[in-house]
């Protein structure tokens, strides 16, 4: 299936003084897909998003949105996109309806267009009953729904979402996911940043793993997991001084791809668990190495993340500002 390109990013770079927030980024987003920028805080994903929505100028390279340059054709880009910033970007004194009315004027909608579209959107995000209350009385989930309604107001071809479910409870989160999927059904291309692995895994059609301003991996969640090769067997060993000996023994076994030692055990990537597992257990037995715990699982997105960045996404401290 050949797919039309919605966004073309080539050799994009953004430096602040000497810090390279984004470094030589190239990727494409296809029309009609949900594309995720996944990375820890400070990885450069928000900077990338801000360049795409014309709020930042790149210091090198370019980003084209439906063929329009994010810098030179900024005004026309702004007419084709919708943006859903993080939840705080709400005027607490305005009501939900007033937010939409304000934006309707900023997108130059006529009074008739605004008066048909605003009630439709309020209905879509289930905010009709609360439309005339000031936003300061809204819950986190309601604010996020209002955000999405604001993003959809210009009837955009592409919608950009910045950390759409950050800080939301589980129920609101699932609801937001449904909304995002519904947008894809309507033919809208969605680009979102996230630092939640499960969100990237379940919601996005394709993801770019970004760390240190560079793309570490790109593909659908399934491709990335398969690309990692093999399933994972994790062993926790009772006597830690036996780990090295066990690692040496396991490496010689058939159907083993890679062995990584941890202080208290091994992570083993295997081709076929049916063959590998008995062999591993037998090796441990032979060395009289007692196992405390065995875990076997198919590769998860966090394994992909660790394999490409060398660390877990949760390693760093949470930090609100991702610049």
């Amino acid at each position: 299936m050949s797919r039309a390109v919605a966004i073309e990013v080539s050799h994009l770079g953004k430096a602040y003084d000497k810090i390279r927030a984004v470094d030589d980024l190239s990727f494409q987003v296809y029309t009609g897909e949900i594309f995720g920028l996944l990375g820890p805080n400070g990885a450069g994903k928000s900077t990338t998003l801000r360049i795409l929505i014309t709020l930042l100028h790149p210091t090198s390279g370019s980003a084209k949105i439906f063929g329009l340059d994010s810098v030179k054709d900024a005004d026309r880009v702004r007419q084709t996109i919708g943006y859903v910033p993080q939840e705080r970007a709400i005027d607490r004194f305005l009501t939900g309806r007033e937010h939409l009315e304000l934006l309707a004027d900023l997108y130059h909608l006529s009074a008739e267009e605004a008066s048909t579209r605003i009630p439709q959107l309020l209905k879509l995000v289930e905010l009709e009953a609360h439309a005339d209350r000031p936003a300061k009385t809204y819950s986190g989930g309601m604010k996020r729904k209002l955000d999405i309604a604001c993003g959809l107001l210009p009837d955009p071809k592409i919608l950009f979402l910045d950390e759409p479910t950050l800080g939301l409870d589980v129920q609101s989160r699932l609801r937001i996911w449904d909304h995002v999927r519904a947008m894809r059904e309507r033919g809208i291309t969605v680009v979102m940043t996230t630092n939640y692995l499960d969100e990237a895994d379940q919601l996005c059609d394709r993801i770019a793993i970004i760390d240190g301003g560079r793309i570490k991996a790109l593909g659908s969640p399934t491709e990335l997991k398969v690309g990692l090769g093999g399933d994972l067997v994790s062993l926790t060993v009772r006597e830690q001084d036996r780990v090295e000996a066990l690692a040496a023994a396991v490496k010689t076994l058939p159907a083993i791809r890679a062995v990584m030692t941890k202080p208290n055990g091994l992570d083993i990537r295997v081709d076929s668990p049916e063959k590998a597992l008995p062999a591993i257990l037998e090796a441990a037995n032979r060395l009289t190495c007692q196992l405390e715990f065995i875990d076997y699982h198919r590769p998860r997105l966090d394994d992909v993340f660790i394999a490409h960045t060398g660390r877990s996404i949760k390693d760093d401290q949470p930090n609100e500002d991702d610049q």
């Binding site: 702004r78 007419q79 993080q86 705080r88 005027d91 900023l106 210009p154």
Partner: peptide, 13 residues
């Protein structure tokens, strides 16, 4: 500070 300005600036004004 709360990002509302970004929201405004992302519109074609």
């Amino acid at each position: 500070e709360n990002g509302f300005l970004e929201r405004l600036m992302s519109t074609p004004i």
